[in-house]
């Protein structure tokens, strides 16, 4: 590779201290993100999946620097080709970075200020970053609304006049206001209804095709991630346990946790129900404040052996993918079957 990726994380770590007692002494730490290496390329989408508490949201928030990382590096490539570690930048030095890396939030009802008009909401980042004259901002707000599929005349209305899907479009317009190069979308469509969700996903894909945006798409929904992502990273208790191209990872997972996640997704295909196997997962989500020794997934893993209880598996390269499992080569894990093969019995039914 001649060029650096748009953003590369090296050993990114975020620990939250657990304090207790009168003096507020630190008694432990929640390892929300623990030494994560990942890269987002220009014009592509990195999907981040995992259960709640796996650290995917914290990771996204570290990238936009809403959290300060506790360790590791975040190497961002500027348009001129220079690469800067933004993990160590101070608040004051972050402004240009924040103009290029924007975020779309989950809840369109709480992430828009109800007392401001769409023009003010979408214009805000432009004003903060000195985008241009008032007239230029006005014109751009109109353009942006048009681009996300809203009528420019709506600019002087307030968020309450809009439905959830429309508000999410406003949130997207705001994220795009400064022509960012990287957008972090944290559960950006999870709060929306199915029919509206499809509209928003299509919109995001179109925007990426038009302007070569890099996306970090954080979601617990494997269906959505498969749909939008070029590369998928699966997180468990703050660590990436498997990462690879979407099709390969879904077709033949290498980590037992990926297999368990895939087996848990409810499929509306009635044929799949007959073929369905029981979900291979034991117990409940582990507590990130008490990460088990050895492989963090071993208490829930149906394939766990003695070595898993003691030795933490490193994230290593297996067949062009990365996986953190001692037995990645041995296990024959089930992915998502080919829908065309699967649809046959439906015809005969």
């Amino acid at each position: 590779m001649s060029t650096e990726p748009l953003l590369r994380l090296e050993g990114l770590t975020k620990h939250f201290p657990i304090r207790s007692g009168l003096l507020g002494r630190q008694v432990g730490a929640v390892r929300a993100v623990d030494a994560v290496d990942l890269a987002v390329e220009e014009g592509t989408t990195l999907g981040l999946v995992g259960e709640s508490g796996c650290g995917k949201t914290t990771l996204g928030r570290c990238i936009v620097r809403a959290h300060d990382p506790s360790g590791g590096r975040m190497l961002y490539r500027w348009p001129d080709g220079s690469v800067i570690d933004v993990a160590g930048l101070k608040e004051k030095e972050l402004k240009p970075y924040r103009g290029q890396v924007r975020m779309i939030f989950q809840d369109p009802h709480s992430s828009l200020n109800p007392r401001k008009t769409l023009r003010e909401i979408i214009g805000e980042p432009m004003r903060a970053h000195g985008y241009g004259t008032k007239e230029e901002v006005h014109a751009r707000v109109g353009d942006l609304l048009d681009r996300v599929g809203l009528r420019p005349e709506y600019a002087d209305r307030y968020p309450h006049a809009f439905s959830g899907g429309e508000r999410q479009r406003v949130g997207i317009a705001r994220a795009l206001a400064l022509s960012p190069r990287l957008v972090v979308a944290d559960e950006a469509v999870s709060a929306l209804d199915v029919s509206v969700r499809a509209q928003i996903l299509n919109l995001l894909t179109d925007l990426q095709d038009e302007s070569g945006l890099g996306f970090l798409f954080v979601s617990h929904d494997l269906g959505i991630i498969e749909h939008v992502a070029d590369v998928v990273a699966v997180m468990y208790l703050g660590k990436v346990v498997e990462q690879g191209p979407t099709g390969e990872l879904y077709g033949r997972p290498l980590h037992p946790y990926t297999e368990a996640l895939l087996s848990a997704v409810p499929d509306p295909d009635p044929a799949a129900r007959r073929h369905r196997e029981r979900i291979k997962l034991l117990g409940d989500i582990a507590d990130p404040a008490h990460v088990p020794p050895g492989c963090p997934f071993h208490p829930r893993c149906v394939y766990a052996r003695d070595v898993c209880r003691t030795d933490p598996p490193p994230l290593r390269e297996v067949g062009g993918r990365r996986v953190a499992c001692h037995f990645a080569e041995e296990l024959e894990l089930r992915g998502v079957p080919d829908p065309d093969v699967r649809e046959d019995p439906k015809v005969s039914a």
Partner: peptide, 17 residues
């Protein structure tokens, strides 16, 4: 039709209502 389903080719357009 508008539901993303596992195993479909990724990055295809969804049929939105």
């Amino acid at each position: 039709r508008s539901m993303p389903r596992l195993g479909r080719a990724s990055r295809t357009r969804l049929a939105a209502i």
